[in-house]
Design a binder for these strands. Structure first.
Ligand SMILES: [Mn+2]
Ligand SMILES: [Mn+2]
Ligand SMILES: [Mn+2]
Ligand SMILES: [Mn+2]
Lengths: 223, 223
DNA sequence: AAAATTTGTTAGATTAATCTAACTTTATTA
DNA sequence: TAATAAAGTTAGATTAATCTAACAAATTTT
């Protein structure tokens, strides 16, 4: 049995690992930044997690999850995304509100609860942000996706998910009339600041590079 | 903002207070027993809770909740009972399973979540064990109820709730075919061990005094 | 009222998780 | 390669929550 703190360490290691396509492992400072704690705190915790056989790690080396650690992390992400789906679909939360509450709910310990919740929701495959929900066995389907910022001028694509989960970002996405499965056309790119002009539902908007780097898409068949 | 530990102290003080009809306040040892910690640990915490204006307490005196503390405790009990109702009604948990999970869920911090959950459940008035759910303002209707052990031989009564919430007890209640709103007739009492013979749904059973002290009833109109 | 029992308190130690400040190792740049 | 910067580690302090063991106050019994 892990403490909530330990669970969060494992979850952040896994998340950083999944983000960075390379399998090189996670760094101490990187993890500290992600968890909003100091590197020295991470260093202390790493020794404990290694003791519990959740990570592989040696002095000055990179952090890697063991199979046990990876499975553990997956169940936390699974719970997080199932709860987000519950809040969104059943309790009418908006998609910018669910993340914060799910950060708490993901730590509730009850295997039966997760199973029953999954069934109650009709075994959803993605959460309100378009992210895949891992199976009970910790399997996850990582769809090959691009960022909106990588799409060439003139091409059409479909929004599949968002990277950032902050309320400010998500509210702005919604203001633009953008949501999961929407078709987006890249009309033009401005070299000056790398901003992008897009068209969604026959509505034109200009968005920053940073914004476009947080919208995940797949290329449309219509290209 | 309170820690989960502090929340549990407040909840237990309130629960003990509600149980013991008298308004004399709670004792250190009593609270320690209820929380499964040592009296010395309680003593340390009492100073902190007093500092935060949640309790009134002086050396060697009894513990009393302030209005602020009482309201806080009520919202925790409210959350606990709403979650129990959710687990029972929506996720098909059995009534002996809900308490343990609700012990965790009651600490989730989100005013909006409680409101939405309450609405989703259709504003329930009692939880699966027959206990009243406090309102948002911390109001609670304490129905004048008796214990089955107090009912005279020959009288009929209606089960309104259970006192004990342990799985072993609740499973046994169910085995006897007993549930909320059932009519119970007290057929006889045995002086030797104070056990009671009852009839429920035309089925006779003999139960111990301790058992009867954990079944809450009201006298039936039919007497 | 004295003795015994129950109830409550204090001091000092322990554990988990964090921090700051100083230090060391590794990587990058000149 | 030597200097500089970045990344990572260690030691020692802090805070919350707990414990044990010794003590003190209040209550009950004799
Ligand atoms: Mn989220
Ligand atoms: Mn999500
Ligand atoms: Mn309960
Ligand atoms: Mn209950």
């Amino acid at each position: 049995m892990l403490s909530i703190t330990e669970e969060n360490y494992i979850k952040h290691i896994l998340s950083l690992d999944l983000e960075s396509s390379s399998n090189l492992g996670v760094g101490t400072n990187e993890l500290a930044l992600s968890l909003s704690v100091k590197p020295s705190s991470v260093n202390v915790m790493l020794k404990k997690l290694r003791e519990k056989a959740l990570i592989e790690y040696e002095k000055y080396g990179k952090i890697q999850l063991t199979e046990k650690g990876r499975l553990f992390g997956m169940t936390i992400i699974r719970k997080h995304r199932l709860w987000e789906t519950f809040l969104y679909q059943k309790l009418d939360f908006t998609w910018d509100e669910v993340h914060e509450v799910a950060e708490q709910l993901e730590h509730i310990q009850s295997v039966k609860l997760v199973e029953k919740l999954d069934k109650f929701l009709g075994f959803p495959k993605i959460d309100p942000h378009g992210d895949p929900i891992p199976t009970e066995k910790g399997e996850i389907k990582i769809a090959s996706k691009l960022f909106l910022s990588e799409i060439q001028t003139g091409k059409k694509c479909k929004m599949v998910s968002v990277k950032d989960n902050s309320a400010v970002f998500l509210k702005f996405v919604q203001e633009l009339g953008l949501s999961i499965n929407n078709e987006i056309e890249v009309l033009s790119k401005l070299d000056f600041d790398e901003s992008i002009e897009i068209s969604v539902n026959n509505q034109k908007s200009r968005v920053s590079k940073k914004f476009a780097q947080n919208i995940c898409v797949i290329l449309s068949d219509k290209n």
